[in-house]
């Protein structure tokens, strides 16, 4: 079962998570501990990286118009910053006493905090990226919602001309996202729904054409309308399912059923 829900987050955090876990285990096994080497330099490197992340993080917040991101990111940045202070304190304490147990605790707490803060930050950023994809999906839903007003061939031409680019964009973005996910079940759900939308698109166009012709000849209008509306509903349901799955970040047992 994957812990991180995207390959990017996994590739960034998994190596550090493994190292932090090892340190925690070693610390528990050797409570009194060996003398710690001077960690001043590696801690300074971490501090510089933290300062850069905080700078880039606040720049991202300032440039974004995503209110949820603006709300979610600062606590994660504070967590990382506070944790780096713990590391600096640990470094000072270890220089004075390389056997200091409280310093080791601070070292573990600081490393763990950086891992958790960076994880929260990446999650907030990732959720914001997902919201962008969802906006594209909703754009397609908006076009599907106005299908009923298409009752002339000229309207159909305009409709297809407008719908095609948003549909292509949605397909491309969902497809890229699907490849990013670590949960196989979520990936399969996205692939299935996207495939359905792709297959239903020509059926929809043809359904609208049949409806327009039926209206012009005044024959079978009700059936044509019912058929068209069914396809619209089916496509909309699949897009709603895509939106739902895009928002899943944790493993859900029931998804296997």
């Amino acid at each position: 079962m994957p812990v991180f829900h995207t390959k990017t987050i996994e590739s960034i955090l998994e190596p550090v998570a493994v190292q932090v876990s090892k340190l925690v285990i070693l610390h528990e096994e050797a409570e009194d501990g060996n003398a710690m080497p001077d960690l001043c330099r590696p801690i300074q490197v971490v501090k510089l990286a933290v300062d850069n992340l905080v700078k880039v993080g606040y720049e991202t917040i300032n440039f974004s118009d995503d209110q949820i991101l603006k709300q979610d990111m600062p606590p994660a940045l504070r967590r990382v910053e506070e944790s780096s202070i713990l590391l600096l304190q640990a470094s000072d304490m270890l220089r004075a006493d390389p056997y200091s147990a409280p310093a080791r605790k601070k070292l573990i707490e600081g490393s763990r905090g950086i891992l958790q803060g960076t994880s929260a930050l990446l999650l907030a950023f990732d959720e914001s990226e997902v919201r962008k994809i969802i906006r594209v999906c909703k754009n397609v839903l908006e076009y599907l919602a106005i299908t009923e007003v298409v009752d002339r061939m000229e309207d159909l031409v305009t409709y297809v001309k407008n719908l095609s680019p948003v549909l292509t964009r949605m397909t491309k973005e969902v497809d890229t996202r699907e490849k990013e996910l670590t949960h196989q079940v979520h990936r399969e759900m996205l692939i299935r729904s996207l495939e359905q939308v792709k297959n239903l698109t020509p059926v929809l166009i043809s359904g609208i054409k049949i409806y327009i012709t039926a209206k012009q000849t005044n024959q079978g209008v009700q059936d044509a309308q019912t058929n068209r509306d069914y396809v619209v509903r089916k496509m909309s349901d699949e897009i709603h399912e895509i939106i739902r799955v895009l928002q899943l970040t944790t493993y859900d047992e029931e998804e296997w059923d």
């Binding site: 080497p37 990286a49 933290v50 991202t60």
Partner: peptide, 29 residues
């Protein structure tokens, strides 16, 4: 993109730090 790069740097620096600390601890275990 910048945020991912910055996060990568932190993760790498923290992993290196923790590895150094673990190495010292491991000698005792």
């Amino acid at each position: 993109e910048q945020i991912l790069e910055a996060a990568k740097s932190i993760a790498a620096a923290t992993a290196a730090l923790v590895k150094s600390a673990s190495a010292a601890q491991r000698e005792l275990v």
